[in-house]
Every structure is written in structure tokens, then in C-alpha cells.
């Protein structure tokens, strides 16, 4: 049984200009201990999905269709009280701005023990402290820095502390939203590698959200490419990366420079994503697509199976 199933999920935001369909009919599934990367430009709905999985949509956002099932429990139907129990203990999140996720005036140790204490009233202080020390070792933070304040940490250390907190209650699923964007290249690389090791060690499912397909491809088993609120291509990382079918995925893969190989010309994607307020009858990418045909604008594209587990939302692939 899949750890996480997202079925036909749609999420809308009420805005001054009307309903903004941030996510439109997305299906995902994640097995235990696997990792799924969600890639796309800002505004494509990837962060919104992450928030919805945590039950943390902003007040003007709501799930307008479909459901989210985590480990047999339908999260999208839970009320706030039940959600709070699921949050952190079963799903944990590593935020985009990790630097701000720690309270600057409380010592790191206190923040971590507090997080455990609220969810595990059965544990005594000594057990909690042992757990915190264990987590510190796990993520490679020196124990002597345990009682520091967050501002005494470097960016990479803060991110490690956040990862330790996410792991604190043995969640089954971790949502990592651009966890390394603000970090330096070397630290980013270290943290990505460590995350991967931890994930395999504890069999945690990870949803990794990023705008950078090269990072996602390196870390994740599977990739889902999102565009304008829809999933447009999904499959195993190798497949999606080397055998990309959707013109958008191809453009993404072709738009970042590499360290080796021929210095082929990068392929910039022209134009901007469409406005998601109001209905879009046909394919959402057609304005920027080299394969654009008359029918693309009128008919919504259908899912095509390319290979086993490799799907693409395009009629011309």
C-alpha cells in the first residue's frame, strides 16, 4: 500500500481578481521509503501541494476537489485538532526559509525538547534529552553547540537543526520545500547527501520541492514536473531526466548548464506561465511550446504512458 496517495487534488485561492486555481487535478503516489521530487517554476503550485499535505494552507486557500490519503487516513477530511496530531508526528516539513523557522530567542536544545514533549507526553525528560542528543549526532551537529541560540549557528547548521527537528518524532513522510536554496554550494551538497542517507536509513518518504531539476534528479527516486498547477510529466528520475517527453520538461532539462560534456547552447523557455485565474480550455503550455498546434489550444491534453511508470500530459509526444 502506498504511503501517500494524492487523488485528483485541486486547490484554489480566493483573490481580489477571482478564484486562483493553484493546483488542478494532481495525482501523486509515494511508497514508503521512496522520494519524489516536485519541480516547477515559482507559482506552479508545488509549494501549495506541500502546504496542503501538512494541512497548512493559508486562510484564503482551500482544497476544492480530490483527496489526500496518508497511510490510510484521509488528511484532507481531518479537522484542525486531528491534523495537529498528524503534523510533525507523521508528516514533518523542512521549510524554504529554514533560517526563520527557529525562534531566535530560545536555545536550540529547548526548541527541540519542546517539540518532542508536546507530541510525546509519555517520554520523561531524560529520554527526551537522549533523543535530542541522538538526533544531533545523526545530522552531524556537534553536541557542544546544543545549548546555543540559533543566531550562533551558521546557515548550514540551522538547516541541520531543522532536519533534526523534522526527524524527531520518526515521521513517515517529510516534505522538504527548497531546503537548500539559501545555502552555499558546498553546504547544500553536504546536506543533500546526508538527507539521502538518513532517508534510506529510516525508510522515510520524502517529497522534495525545488525549482532546480538538477538537484531533484540527483536526490530523488521519482520526479514529478509541474506546470501552471498541473502535473505534466511523472516517472522515475532517470527516465524523466534522460528520456523527457513533455516539451516543458525538455526545456527545463536543457536550461541549466553542466560541468562536463559539450557546451551546447542552453534552451531558454520563452514567455511566462499563464494566469491561473479563470478557465484555460486547452494545454497550459501551448503559448510557450515549440510543438504548439491548433488543437492544443482547444482540447485539454490527455495522459500518455511512455514507459512503465513514466507518464506525460501531452498529445504530441
Amino acid at each position: 500500500m502506498a504511503l501517500l496517495k494524492v487523488e485528483n487534488l485541486s486547490i484554489g485561492y480566493r483573490t481580489a481578481g477571482g478564484m486562483l486555481k493553484a493546483v488542478d487535478g494532481v495525482n501523486l503516489s509515494l511508497e514508503e521509503g521512496r522520494s519524489l521530487g516536485l519541480v516547477g517554476e515559482s507559482g506552479c503550485g508545488k509549494t501549495t501541494i506541500g502546504m496542503a499535505l501538512m494541512g497548512l494552507l493559508p486562510p484564503n486557500g482551500s482544497i476544492t476537489g480530490g483527496r489526500i490519503v496518508l497511510d490510510g487516513v484521509e488528511i484532507s477530511a481531518l479537522d484542525e485538532e486531528e491534523l495537529r496530531k498528524v503534523r510533525w508526528s507523521q508528516v514533518a516539513m523542512i521549510f524554504q526559509a529554514a533560517m526563520n523557522a527557529l525562534n531566535p530567542v530560545i536555545r536550540v536544545s529547548a526548541q527541540m525538547t519542546e517539540a518532542i514533549r508536546t507530541h510525546r507526553p509519555d517520554m520523561d525528560e531524560q529520554a527526551i534529552m537522549q533523543r535530542v542528543e541522538g538526533l544531533f549526532n545523526l545530522v552531524g551537529l556537534p553536541l557542544e553547540r546544543l545549548h546555543d541560540f540559533p543566531h550562533q549557528y551558521s546557515g548550514g547548521m540551522k538547516q541541520r537543526a531543522i532536519i533534526a527537528m523534522a526527524l524527531a518524532l520518526n515521521p513517515k513522510l517529510i516534505i522538504a520545500d527548497e531546503p537548500t536554496t539559501a545555502l552555499d554550494v558546498i553546504v547544500q551538497d553536504q546536506i543533500l547527501k546526508e538527507t539521502k542517507v538518513l532517508q534510506e536509513q529510516f525508510d522515510i518518504g520524502i517529497i522534495f520541492i525545488s525549482h532546480d531539476i538538477s538537484i531533484v534528479a540527483e536526490v530523488c527516486h521519482d520526479i514529478g514536473v509541474m506546470y501552471a498547477g498541473q502535473l505534466v510529466e511523472a516517472g522515475p528520475a532517470q527516465e524523466v531526466f534522460f528520456n523527457s517527453k513533455h516539451p516543458y520538461t525538455r526545456a527545463l532539462v536543457g536550461s541549466f548548464p553542466t560541468l562536463a560534456g559539450p557546451k551546447s547552447k542552453l534552451t531558454p523557455i520563452p514567455g511566462e506561465p499563464p494566469n491561473l485565474i479563470g478557465a484555460i480550455p486547452g494545454c497550459r503550455f501551448c503559448d510557450r511550446c515549440p510543438k504548439d498546434t491548433a488543437s492544443c489550444k482547444l482540447e485539454p491534453p490527455k495522459w500518455q504512458e511512455i514507459n512503465e511508470r513514466h507518464w506525460v500530459l501531452c498529445d504530441h509526444c
Binding site: G140, I186, Q188, D189, Q190, S214, E218, F241, T258, A260
Partner: peptide, 23 residues
């Protein structure tokens, strides 16, 4: 070390790993 840290997925075969950076 900078080259080690660059994501190498795809089209980067043959880029060696140097391991010159102390964690």
C-alpha cells in the same frame, strides 16, 4: 571542492570526485 559540490546528474560522466574539503 566546488566542483565536487556541483550537482552532476546527467551529462557529467567523467567528472572525478576530488574529496579535498574537510567536513
Amino acid at each position: 571542492a566546488l566542483i565536487d559540490a556541483t550537482p552532476k546528474f546527467g551529462r557529467c560522466e567523467g567528472v572525478p570526485t576530488y574529496g579535498t574539503y574537510l567536513p
